[in-house]
Nucleic acid binder design. Sequence first.
RNA 1: GCCGGGGUGGCGAAACGGCAGACGUAGCGGGCUUAAACCCCGCGGCCCGCAAGGGCAUGUGGGUUCGACUCCCACCCCCGGCACCA
Length: 841
Amino acid sequence: MTTPPATPPASAASARGQVERYDPGTLEARWQERWAADALYRTADHVPGKENWYALTMFPYTSGDLHVGHWFAMAPSDALVRFRRMQGYNVLFPMGFDAFGLPAENAAIKGGLHPQDWTYANVERMRGQLRRMGASFDWDREVITCAPDYYRWTQWWFTRLYRQGLAYRGEALVNWCPSCNTTLANEQVVDGRCERCDSVTDQRMMSQWFFRTTNYAEELLANQDLDWPEHVKLMQRNWIGRSEGAEVSFALEQPTASGVDEIRVFTTRPDTLFGVTFMVLAPEHPLVKQLTTPRRRKAVEEYVQAAARKTEIERQSTELAKTGVFTGAYCINRLTGDRVPVWVADYALATYGTGAVMGVPAHDQRDYDFAKQYRLKVKVVIAPNATRYRTRLAEAYIEPGVAVNSGPFDGMPNAEMKSAVAQHLAERGWGGPRITYRLRDWLISRQRYWGAPIPIVYCEDCGTVVVPDDQLPVELPYDVEFRPTGESPLALSEAFVHTTCPDCGKPARRETDTMDTFMCSSWYFMRYADARNPAEAFSKAGAEAWLPVDQYTGGSEHATMHLLYARFFYKFARDIGLVPGDEPFTRYFSQGQILGPDGRRMSKSRGNVVAPDDQVARWGADCFRAYLMFLGPWEQGGPYDVDGIVGVSRWLNRLWTLVVDPPARLADGLTSHSTTRQLRQAAHATLERVTEDLGRYRMNTMVAALMELTNTLQDIRATGEVDARAWDEAVELLVLMLAPSCPHIAEELWERTNHDYATTGSVHTQPWPAFDPALAAQDVVEIAVQVNGRVRDRLELPADADEATARAAAEALPRVAEHTANHEIIRVIYVPGRLLNIVVR
RNA sequence: GCCGGGGUGGCGAAACGGCAGACGUAGCGGGCUUAAACCCCGCGGCCCGCAAGGGCAUGUGGGUUCGACUCCCACCCCCGGCACCA
């Protein structure tokens, strides 16, 4: 079998003659080099006469490959940045790498490469891919979170939080991922599974480092004024989960051996306190062991152990019937003096409120179910009507009502009673008003290698000592056995563990856990403001120049993790006087998710991954960028249709040809020619649309508008004689409008239309053109003529025609007359430029 | 169950309460080509009709309006989040 030579036929001659073909590959590489050589995107902190604008798109994790999702977030962001620059802003648009984290270790274990070497190799590769995108990143401010000159400051943040009492070590029930062999923050457990690897997690009592995010719960909750997507703000508010209610103390009938004489509960229904018929402790509640009577011990221990064996998924399932065991102990409802049996049941959660629940079966469905299961008493204390009400219920009564069987509160509306009871309790020292959050403190300890070491030293004499600034960074040693065992790999490194106490100089041991990588990403956007600063995390001047971020772009999967942590960090930074404002991200845009061609999440196992490199190699970066913008609304995302991109490629080819091969007969002074008017109208109307669309992040319709103008120019070219000035103006506007989305071809065409890059500058440094409303307006418009709301004909009219003119012209149309004859015209509605509706009877 | 976001041609989509389907694809017909194409022209929701034209169409059913994809009410389906949080 013979194959033809690989060289394509040299002649690509079209009907229009020999025209140079659009060749994105070489053209894009050439301009990328040129821009880099000229440092076109280096951003100064201040430029006279220009306002600063900080645009940020989430930096990628160093997985090794940029995927379509990265492009989908970054390419439109870059277009908006370029647009804003042309509008006269001094724009900071930095890029970097989120480089610590488990995948590096997992890949290292699998492939035999050290996590650090794996990570830096990936940085190298991804940097190249990002450059190939043609985005206008300021690489001089690049950050790599695993570099000592970065994590030194991550550790510094820890020390500041520690000194402010916001970092603490505490014993708590924490989430554990048995596959990752490490603890996880609450935010990193999704439906009882590890957010990273999807393994089922369990809970363990461990001593770990936490940040007091709950100190800021109230402020984090107050996000409604942020210019963020509502659904993201809502996710955060749901996550924080504020509940208003009361804490109530119940006296133990028999104080425990250790002297505890009460059980405290949190309730949102203090109005039902008179209806308590049992008490429930979570299996992990510290009092369980102490108050269980000898006769009940065996049963309780068995139950507690069984609960511990269950996974979170099993524990949290609402479908399961309620289970529990009686402890044999009783407590006293101080308001009524009632003797209340104390049970253990796993529907009480150890990590919420006080870990104990008062059982009010008459007015809480869960308590009702539990009471039915174990035949416990049901006491009605809220009723729709104070005089007549049911005492036997088929389900809990949770509607509003008035108090009954509630002593001094009888007859009081229950809404009012909530605060009255809380008040009553407070006066007697039995509890009082209380607000509880679902949000937990942020667990930041990780029993893994590839992260920033926690800068803490344990000294026998001085106790827990924070590493002083001049001893940072606490360097992560390279030569460590990092296989995950559940114990921190750093504990195995004698050289790392053994140190001296910063306070007294005696031998001491280092903390061997590393920090959650979400810590690195909680402040990277601040570092960009002054990325090369060797003496500070960032300078005051840098912060004043750039913070807070004006526009942030990323996926909403980070709503309750990164975006929440970053807000926490920023508020802390504000409190210690480092940054201006209260919020890190003034505006946040959440782009949609790009799916595989089959409409499902892209994944290697499904084999539906579209590699951006392949798309770029085949179509060019400009084409791929524009196609991603053209697909649909940016916030929506959707399946990536590999066949659709050809339309964008055809468009760019036509546009190219149009500019490189202008109309055959260009003549001066044809200003009265109808095509001249049409040309100018189309160009200015498009400019109006594109300006509007870019301002509202509507990238898809922006590209469509450019396509339309291209089609119009092509039609006009075909008519023959065209006014040279009008043509040049239209082409110039088209190229300027193309610059944000397709920076390379725009630059090339800009140069080819008599603009010298060396003297007059890049197309990307040109001011955004202003459109002329008079030119953008149409002279003649086609309107629809309706009879009773149905279109019967169309009519061409001068744009400024009045109603009488329009009506006369419409009634003269035979197809209209047909429908109005023998009818009485009762009304005529005229919308200039749109339609005329004749209403008949 | 609760809270968001969506249902418009074969597909991706567009449409200040005012001509539904811009723009683009798939497909069909034609041109240029020995042949093709990431080239050019045309058609391109469904039904009836040779055509002119007419009817039906924006998840379903109501309503408001001269006029509804758009506003209101009820419901169905899909996607995302939360869910034994006391």
